Computed example of a mutant assay.
Amino acid sequence: MSLPTITPAEAKRLIDQGAVLVDVRERDEHARERIPGARNVALSSLEQAELEAGPGKIVLFHCKSGMRTIGNASKLAAKAGEGCDAFVVEGGIDAWRRAGLPVEVDAKQPLELQRQVQIGAGSMALVGTVLGVVADPAFLIVPAFVGAGLTVAGITGFCGMARVLKVMPWNKALRTPAASPVVAR
Protein backbone atom coordinates (compact mmCIF):
# COMPACT_ATOMS: atom_id res chain seq x y z
CA MET A 1 0.00 0.00 0.00
CA SER A 2 1.35 3.42 -0.85
CA LEU A 3 0.49 6.72 0.73
CA PRO A 4 -0.47 9.77 -1.30
CA THR A 5 2.07 12.56 -1.39
CA ILE A 6 1.40 16.22 -0.72
CA THR A 7 3.54 19.29 -1.27
CA PRO A 8 5.21 21.05 1.64
CA ALA A 9 2.80 23.99 1.23
CA GLU A 10 -0.20 21.64 1.47
CA ALA A 11 1.40 19.95 4.48
CA LYS A 12 1.93 23.30 6.21
CA ARG A 13 -1.75 24.17 5.67
CA LEU A 14 -2.83 20.83 7.20
CA ILE A 15 -0.45 21.22 10.14
CA ASP A 16 -1.88 24.66 10.83
CA GLN A 17 -5.31 22.96 10.93
CA GLY A 18 -4.14 20.37 13.48
CA ALA A 19 -2.56 17.55 11.46
CA VAL A 20 0.17 15.55 13.21
CA LEU A 21 3.60 15.75 11.53
CA VAL A 22 5.87 12.74 12.09
CA ASP A 23 9.58 12.87 11.26
CA VAL A 24 10.74 9.29 10.54
CA ARG A 25 14.45 10.16 10.47
CA GLU A 26 16.78 8.98 13.20
CA ARG A 27 17.07 10.95 16.44
CA ASP A 28 20.46 12.46 15.53
CA GLU A 29 19.09 13.81 12.23
CA HIS A 30 16.02 15.30 13.92
CA ALA A 31 18.07 16.89 16.71
CA ARG A 32 20.23 18.83 14.26
CA GLU A 33 17.47 20.06 11.93
CA ARG A 34 13.71 19.69 12.14
CA ILE A 35 10.40 21.12 11.07
CA PRO A 36 8.87 23.04 14.00
CA GLY A 37 6.34 20.89 15.82
CA ALA A 38 7.36 17.63 14.13
CA ARG A 39 7.23 14.55 16.31
CA ASN A 40 10.27 12.30 15.90
CA VAL A 41 9.40 8.63 15.49
CA ALA A 42 12.37 6.98 13.77
CA LEU A 43 11.61 4.16 11.37
CA SER A 44 13.92 1.98 13.46
CA SER A 45 11.61 2.37 16.47
CA LEU A 46 8.28 2.66 14.66
CA GLU A 47 6.94 -0.63 16.00
CA GLN A 48 7.19 0.49 19.64
CA ALA A 49 5.98 4.05 19.06
CA GLU A 50 2.51 5.40 19.66
CA LEU A 51 1.20 7.90 17.13
CA GLU A 52 -1.41 10.48 17.97
CA ALA A 53 -3.55 9.05 15.20
CA GLY A 54 -6.86 7.40 14.72
CA PRO A 55 -10.15 7.81 12.93
CA GLY A 56 -10.65 11.31 11.59
CA LYS A 57 -7.03 12.36 12.25
CA ILE A 58 -4.56 13.49 9.61
CA VAL A 59 -0.97 12.25 9.90
CA LEU A 60 1.84 13.51 7.70
CA PHE A 61 5.13 11.63 7.45
CA HIS A 62 8.43 13.12 6.33
CA CYS A 63 12.09 12.20 6.13
CA LYS A 64 15.06 13.98 4.56
CA SER A 65 14.25 13.62 0.86
CA GLY A 66 11.04 11.61 0.78
CA MET A 67 12.69 8.31 -0.16
CA ARG A 68 12.47 6.66 3.27
CA THR A 69 8.83 7.57 3.71
CA ILE A 70 7.85 6.40 0.23
CA GLY A 71 9.88 3.20 0.65
CA ASN A 72 8.13 2.42 3.94
CA ALA A 73 4.67 3.70 3.05
CA SER A 74 2.89 0.44 3.88
CA LYS A 75 4.42 0.35 7.39
CA LEU A 76 3.55 3.99 7.94
CA ALA A 77 -0.02 3.56 6.70
CA ALA A 78 -0.48 0.58 9.02
CA LYS A 79 0.89 2.56 11.96
CA ALA A 80 -1.45 5.48 11.24
CA GLY A 81 -4.36 3.06 11.43
CA GLU A 82 -7.74 2.70 9.82
CA GLY A 83 -9.86 5.78 9.38
CA CYS A 84 -6.82 8.03 9.58
CA ASP A 85 -5.81 10.12 6.57
CA ALA A 86 -2.06 9.66 6.12
CA PHE A 87 0.21 11.38 3.64
CA VAL A 88 3.89 11.63 2.74
CA VAL A 89 5.40 15.12 2.50
CA GLU A 90 6.86 15.09 -0.99
CA GLY A 91 10.61 15.73 -0.95
CA GLY A 92 10.84 15.63 2.86
CA ILE A 93 12.54 18.33 4.89
CA ASP A 94 14.76 19.20 1.91
CA ALA A 95 11.70 20.25 -0.15
CA TRP A 96 10.18 21.93 2.91
CA ARG A 97 13.29 24.11 3.23
CA ARG A 98 13.37 24.84 -0.54
CA ALA A 99 9.73 25.96 -0.32
CA GLY A 100 10.84 28.65 2.12
CA LEU A 101 9.05 27.10 5.08
CA PRO A 102 10.66 27.34 8.53
CA VAL A 103 13.06 24.76 9.92
CA GLU A 104 14.73 24.72 13.32
CA VAL A 105 18.49 24.27 13.20
CA ASP A 106 20.62 23.37 16.21
CA ALA A 107 24.22 23.58 15.00
CA LYS A 108 25.43 22.52 18.48
CA GLN A 109 24.20 19.00 17.76
CA PRO A 110 26.73 16.64 16.17
CA LEU A 111 26.52 15.90 12.47
CA GLU A 112 24.25 12.99 11.60
CA LEU A 113 26.01 9.66 12.12
CA GLN A 114 25.71 8.75 8.42
CA ARG A 115 27.50 11.97 7.44
CA GLN A 116 30.22 11.28 10.01
CA VAL A 117 30.75 7.85 8.45
CA GLN A 118 30.92 9.37 4.96
CA ILE A 119 33.47 11.98 6.09
CA GLY A 120 35.56 9.39 7.94
CA ALA A 121 35.52 6.79 5.15
CA GLY A 122 36.17 9.37 2.44
CA SER A 123 39.05 10.92 4.38
CA MET A 124 40.65 7.54 5.09
CA ALA A 125 40.35 6.47 1.44
CA LEU A 126 41.78 9.77 0.18
CA VAL A 127 44.70 9.89 2.63
CA GLY A 128 45.48 6.19 2.10
CA THR A 129 45.50 6.64 -1.68
CA VAL A 130 47.69 9.75 -1.57
CA LEU A 131 50.14 8.08 0.84
CA GLY A 132 50.12 4.95 -1.33
CA VAL A 133 51.10 6.97 -4.38
CA VAL A 134 53.51 9.40 -2.70
CA ALA A 135 55.08 7.47 0.19
CA ASP A 136 54.66 3.70 0.02
CA PRO A 137 52.29 1.46 -1.95
CA ALA A 138 51.57 -0.45 1.27
CA PHE A 139 49.29 2.47 2.28
CA LEU A 140 46.89 1.36 -0.48
CA ILE A 141 45.63 -1.19 2.03
CA VAL A 142 43.76 1.68 3.74
CA PRO A 143 41.37 2.50 0.85
CA ALA A 144 41.00 -1.23 0.18
CA PHE A 145 40.02 -1.77 3.83
CA VAL A 146 37.56 1.15 3.70
CA GLY A 147 36.05 -0.18 0.46
CA ALA A 148 35.65 -3.63 1.98
CA GLY A 149 34.04 -2.15 5.09
CA LEU A 150 31.55 -0.14 3.05
CA THR A 151 30.71 -3.21 0.96
CA VAL A 152 30.06 -5.28 4.09
CA ALA A 153 27.96 -2.44 5.53
CA GLY A 154 25.90 -2.27 2.35
CA ILE A 155 25.31 -6.02 2.22
CA THR A 156 24.73 -6.75 5.90
CA GLY A 157 23.53 -3.45 7.36
CA PHE A 158 26.35 -3.60 9.93
CA CYS A 159 28.74 -0.64 9.81
CA GLY A 160 31.72 -0.95 12.13
CA MET A 161 32.73 2.66 11.61
CA ALA A 162 29.24 3.83 12.64
CA ARG A 163 29.48 1.72 15.79
CA VAL A 164 32.83 3.31 16.65
CA LEU A 165 31.66 6.84 15.87
CA LYS A 166 28.48 6.37 17.89
CA VAL A 167 30.49 6.04 21.14
CA MET A 168 32.74 9.03 20.48
CA PRO A 169 32.48 11.80 23.10
CA TRP A 170 30.73 14.23 20.74
CA ASN A 171 28.00 11.63 20.08
CA LYS A 172 27.68 10.15 23.59
CA ALA A 173 24.82 12.21 24.94
CA LEU A 174 22.73 13.48 22.09
CA ARG A 175 21.45 16.69 23.54
CA THR A 176 17.75 17.41 23.72
CA PRO A 177 16.77 20.02 21.13
CA ALA A 178 17.18 23.49 22.61
CA ALA A 179 14.13 25.36 23.78
CA SER A 180 14.88 28.26 21.47
CA PRO A 181 16.73 26.97 18.41
CA VAL A 182 17.65 29.12 15.47
CA VAL A 183 14.80 29.20 12.98
CA ALA A 184 15.98 29.33 9.38
CA ARG A 185 13.79 30.25 6.45
Rank of each mutant, 00 (worst) to 15 (best):
M1Q: 11
M1P: 10
S2K: 13
P4K: 09
T5V: 12
P8F: 03
A9Q: 14
A9R: 14
E10G: 00
K12A: 15
L14M: 14
I15S: 02
A19K: 03
V20M: 04
V22I: 15
D23S: 07
R27E: 12
D28G: 07
R34F: 09
I35R: 04
G37R: 15
A38P: 10
R39E: 15
N40W: 09
S44F: 03
L46H: 13
G54N: 11
K57G: 04
K57N: 11
K57F: 00
F61I: 04
K64V: 04
G66I: 04
L76P: 08
L76E: 03
K79F: 00
A80Y: 07
A80D: 09
E82C: 00
G83H: 02
G83P: 05
D85C: 00
D85A: 07
F87A: 06
V88A: 01
G91S: 07
G91N: 09
G92A: 02
I93Y: 02
W96H: 03
R98T: 02
A99I: 04
P102M: 07
V103W: 00
V103F: 01
V103P: 00
R115G: 06
R115A: 04
R115K: 12
Q118H: 13
I119Y: 06
I119Q: 14
I119V: 15
G120T: 15
G120M: 10
G122S: 13
G122D: 09
G132S: 12
V133H: 13
V134Y: 12
A138E: 10
V142S: 13
V142T: 15
P143R: 04
F145W: 14
G147E: 12
L150W: 05
L150N: 08
L150V: 08
V152T: 11
T156Y: 05
C159L: 06
A162Q: 01
R163I: 11
V164I: 15
K166L: 10
K166G: 05
P169Q: 01
N171R: 04
L174E: 06
L174Q: 07
A178T: 11
A179M: 06
P181M: 01
A184W: 03
